[in-house]
Design a protein around this nucleic acid. Sequence first.
DNA 1: AATATGCGGGAAATCGATTTCTGACTTTTC
DNA 2: GAAAAGTCAGAAATCGATTTCCCGCATATT
Lengths: 349, 349
Amino acid sequence: MATHTPESRKARGSGADIIQVARRAGVSPATVSRVTNGRSTVARHLAKRVWQAIEELGYTPNPQARALVSGRSRVLGLLISEITNPFFPELMQSFEDVAGEHDFEVMIGSTNYNRERARIFIRRLVQRRVEGVAVMTFRAESHFLDELIAENIPLVTIDVSANAARSLVLEVDYAQGIDEAVQHLARLGHRRIGFASGPMPHLTNLRRKDAFLRSVKQIGLAEQDAPLFVGDHTFEGGTQAALHFLGLDPHPTAIVCSNDMMAVGVLRVMAERGIRVPQEMSVIGFDDIHLAEFVNPPLTTVRMSRQDLARAAYKGLEQLWTENPAGTRGPIRVATSLVVRQSTDSPGA
Amino acid sequence: MATHTPESRKARGSGADIIQVARRAGVSPATVSRVTNGRSTVARHLAKRVWQAIEELGYTPNPQARALVSGRSRVLGLLISEITNPFFPELMQSFEDVAGEHDFEVMIGSTNYNRERARIFIRRLVQRRVEGVAVMTFRAESHFLDELIAENIPLVTIDVSANAARSLVLEVDYAQGIDEAVQHLARLGHRRIGFASGPMPHLTNLRRKDAFLRSVKQIGLAEQDAPLFVGDHTFEGGTQAALHFLGLDPHPTAIVCSNDMMAVGVLRVMAERGIRVPQEMSVIGFDDIHLAEFVNPPLTTVRMSRQDLARAAYKGLEQLWTENPAGTRGPIRVATSLVVRQSTDSPGA
DNA sequence: AATATGCGGGAAATCGATTTCTGACTTTTC
DNA sequence: GAAAAGTCAGAAATCGATTTCCCGCATATT
């Protein structure tokens, strides 16, 4: 319950307003506005005087006033699952960069898989009048979004549709990267490959798993040579998966994981058991988080570019704004691709 | 250069304004404002009618209008060094949580040690009229901040003073945690302890190093038994430090690092050389990033609580707002403490 | 040459709140 | 019981932009 002193209002620095600029340039405020927004044309010599006055006074338009009259806050929302998964901070930064290029600010909220946190954050988004929200949570809990939908706020999601008029789904091409991963393993000579999946209600995990199954079939593996384990996308989930696969007889010579954190868990178990990676066991992750480079050995993984994802999300919002009715509302695709590091090699190398 | 359709303005959902609320409650807008802000007293039965109208219409005050007239944007800035260091996302979330409790939004920018990025971000902060900025960069480049200082925006920094009227320094008590770390090692029997420092122009690293030197002196180590290496706070810096210390004869039996990323680099070198941690080499980090739990072995490290730091930063801004002239402008301290995991043991255990 | 058209720029309305001013009414005070 | 003081709520000013409306002047049209 902080309260400011009333003086704080006028204590601000240079803060020139549009009227002062207009006076200095010898024009009306309307003309200054026309110049800064470049909508309507203004005579050369007047525009020049206006720019000069702006320069001299260090004027920047008050965004609150601007937002008030235009009805556009120039603020976007970004919803992520958990800040401790390094994938998200990187995505966050990319999204802020794209948004910033277009003069938007971003409100960021991480749900931490906590319903109440999400609710509170979404309430804040609505109150701040955001112009659009990128829901980057890989989770199907669209009832989270009901309040946003009710307010008719444009919504971009991953994999799973928000089922609302002003919304749009980004389609991540998991198959592409996972195909590369499986073929990479096949080329190295692996004939028994485990897949450590994330939790199944997530549509994204279903997609990743299906892509894996299709790939192994394509290289001619029998079903029992491509065992699955369903974990929970965390480090611990990875350790459980590793223990499960090691318990099989014969056990797989390679493990593909549904995300990097699980892969790191797998690496840990191997290290504890004295099983050398990649000589005795190959491991592949998914996401290419920063950490993937720093574990031992550096992780071969499927990269989903955060820049691409962030740009795609922004582009999606743009499409929703222009509301292109007949428009090119084609799906927006995000590519994935394999990054080979040192956690994969031929079995028994 | 996105442009919206003009329709987007009225396309918004329920959006009731204060006049509609006033009408419905049969009072004037001024009274509604008085009720929502609770400044002045309003007769019981009127207030009740107002709240009911607010409820029924789903009214939330337009923050832009509110900001415009009050001169307060209710937005704060948070400047961090690099988003890929997991310490910062966690700090970020904590700061957003504290800010959110007080109805502030947070604009986040990471410099990535890039002057131009920082400049652009700070420009955005000024343009958005933030009411205060937390500079959590551990870096002494205060000329970054000149624009903020010129605008007289309240500033909270870590370790290094911004040298401005409306600013305040958080003092992290490095000595406390590092003392614990060194004494922990001494108790385990280590008599030769290396310190891998971060780059020296950073005041924070100077502080950490000094704390280390004081601690080892206190447990009675000679100078040559507490060798230093100056790296750069990254994974690679850690690998360099490790190689340096291993090259000494005799080499230290324990390495204390100025941050966790360096410690992870040290662990990597040990793993590659087949030197077992903690049996043959003890390693201690600093920060307690999320990752510290997941490396092999889990890292003993000095924890600086992000919650504490975030709360301290917010509290600092609060102090600057109230501008307590004679006030309790005492330093705001942030504690550190040792978290013992599995990367430390007796030498030769 | 007379009228129609276009265009640039100023005056004023507007966005949605907060806050100051003011007047009606109630409560205290001597 | 009359004057002074205190409450409470409405009317109106205000914040700082954008945008609509309109007028005057220059150019195009017949």
